[in-house]
């Protein structure tokens, strides 16, 4: 074990130029990821949760270097990735892999299962034909694919099986970090739990580290050790799973929690603080706290000053002027 965290993200920013019209002088930028910092320890699972458009997928793309960051640093095992040369970066990619959301577009329709799973091995390792085939067959066993599927094409499979192929490709090089970009949200509910269990089992068996991106808390609850809640390009709350579910401190997290359906009707309370309204236009974010237009607890200060992302309680980071439960905490002290 090294003393570095596996992944450290510092002040990461990504803006997209969305200037419309040829003659506009002023450029407009969409800040998809706006000053995000967090760390991921070896062997842990970080869940990243947020509504669509909050920048969570962009964050994943930045970490696997599908996008260049506008500002900020991604430090992987103590090495700043922006300082790497192109060839070094290409080799580095073997350690960070991605599982994609849509299993129908993530597999090349013209390639056989064997070629799809073998691609990372061919790219980074020098194996002869027999070794390569053995390795691919082992991977297929690992993700629960029948060995006889080796020479089939992706279109012959269901969504769940396709996702297994995608997972086999992602773990082929035994990466240290895997970004799961909503890996189950495109699948049938009955398949979702199978894939989640598979991911969990692989994480345990291969000592993998995940960044698990999802748009709702239920999906990450099952797999995560720590959860980061994103809103409009920023992380608003970052803490352990238990702490987040028992003591949410950001009003947005509270809203997300109360949006989880409760299966037992007798346990439903009459009124839960559900979120209203939509996510604001990220090109023109509101001043002050980005969440204030939808926040039930907003005050004067929320509309003017952007809250800082600080450690409010032993590793529980929140960006809010009036964190929930703070009063309770204060009462206890008295």
């Amino acid at each position: 074990m090294s003393e570095h965290p596996l992944l450290e993200v510092r002040g990461l920013q990504k803006s997209f130029d969305v200037t419309k019209g040829f003659f506009k002088k002023e450029k407009q930028y969409l800040r998809a990821v706006n000053d995000v910092s967090f760390t991921v320890q070896n062997g842990e699972v970080l869940g990243v949760v947020g509504e669509s458009g909050c920048g969570k997928s962009t964050l994943g793309n930045l970490i696997v270097h599908l996008h260049e960051p506008t500002a900020g640093k991604i430090v992987f095992e103590g090495i700043d990735m922006s300082a790497l040369s192109r060839e070094q970066l290409r080799r580095q990619r073997a350690d960070i892999q991605m599982i994609f959301q849509d299993p129908f577009s993530s597999l090349n329709p013209r390639k056989r299962v064997f070629d799809i799973i073998a691609e990372p091995l061919r790219t980074h390792r020098d194996l002869n034909k027999e070794e390569l085939q053995q390795e691919v067959l082992d991977l297929m066993d690992l993700v629960g694919l029948n060995r006889s599927f080796l020479n089939r094409y992706p279109h012959e499979f269901s969504g769940g099986q396709r996702q297994r192929i995608g997972i086999a490709r992602a773990i082929a090089l035994r990466p240290k970090l895997i970004i799961c970009d909503e890996p189950v949200s495109a699948l049938d509910v009955s398949i979702q739990s199978q894939i989640l269990n598979l991911l969990k089992k692989l994480q345990k068996d291969l000592q993998l580290t995940y960044i698990f991106i999802a748009h709702g808390l239920p999906a990450v609850k099952h797999v995560s050790d720590r959860i980061a809640v994103m809103y409009l390009g920023k992380i608003v709350e970052w803490t352990t799973k238990e702490e987040l579910f028992t003591n949410p401190m950001h009003p947005y997290t509270e809203g997300l929690l109360s949006a989880i359906p409760i299966p037992d009707p007798t346990k439903r309370k009459e009124q839960r603080p559900l979120l209203e309204g939509d996510i604001p236009n990220p090109v023109n974010p509101p001043p002050g706290c980005k969440f204030h237009p939808r926040c039930p607890y907003k005050t004067e200060i929320c509309m003017q000053v952007e809250p800082e992302f600080t450690d409010k309680r032993a590793g529980h980071f929140v960006a809010c002027h009036h964190p929930l439960g703070a009063e309770k905490q204060a009462e206890k002290k008295l």
Binding site: A94, M98, D102, T123, R169
Partner: peptide, 12 residues
């Protein structure tokens, strides 16, 4: 499409 992005992230 994602399979091209997958290939890029593999380092092909």
């Amino acid at each position: 499409r994602d399979f091209v992005r997958a290939a890029k992230s593999i380092g092909v």
